[in-house]
């Protein structure tokens, strides 16, 4: 590890806001992973279902899970921003 990298790591560790941001990213990624898995299982169930009522229910659920994931990804991008600017600085 070179000196700049070490300095960056030390700065990140000492900065409370930076630590908090990284923690938020980690938790958000965890939730997004769970939602992705859930969406996949819903899609699979939709493929195997012929009942119209159940299909309609599943479609709404999939639409909502997808929107939640989209919101989460946008939030994740926002959380990544400060780190990019810090690197440029």
């Amino acid at each position: 590890m070179n000196l700049t990298k070490l300095a960056n790591k030390t700065r990140d560790f000492l900065s409370f806001a930076e630590r908090k941001r990284k923690e938020k990213k980690k938790f958000l990624k965890h939730v997004l992973k769970k939602l992705k898995k859930h969406e996949k299982s819903l899609l699979k169930e939709l493929k195997e279902t012929s009942d119209a009522d159940r299909r309609a229910g599943l479609e709404s659920e999939i639409a909502l899970v997808h929107a939640q994931r989209k919101k989460g990804v946008a939030r994740l991008q926002e959380l990544k921003k400060p780190s990019k600017s810090a690197k440029k600085a």
Binding site: E23, K24, K26, F27, L28, H30, V31, L32, L35, D53, R54, A56, G57, E59, S60, A63, L64, H66, A67, Q68, R69, K71, G72, R75
Partner: peptide, 27 residues
């Protein structure tokens, strides 16, 4: 932290409406 993340991506009414359009009839 995980609870905070869950809440941060929960949808409000307008986001739900946008995602669903008109809700299909449910059981």
């Amino acid at each position: 932290g995980l609870r905070e993340a869950e809440r941060s991506i929960s949808l409000d009414e307008s986001e739900m409406a946008e995602a669903l359009g008109t809700l299909p009839e449910t059981p």
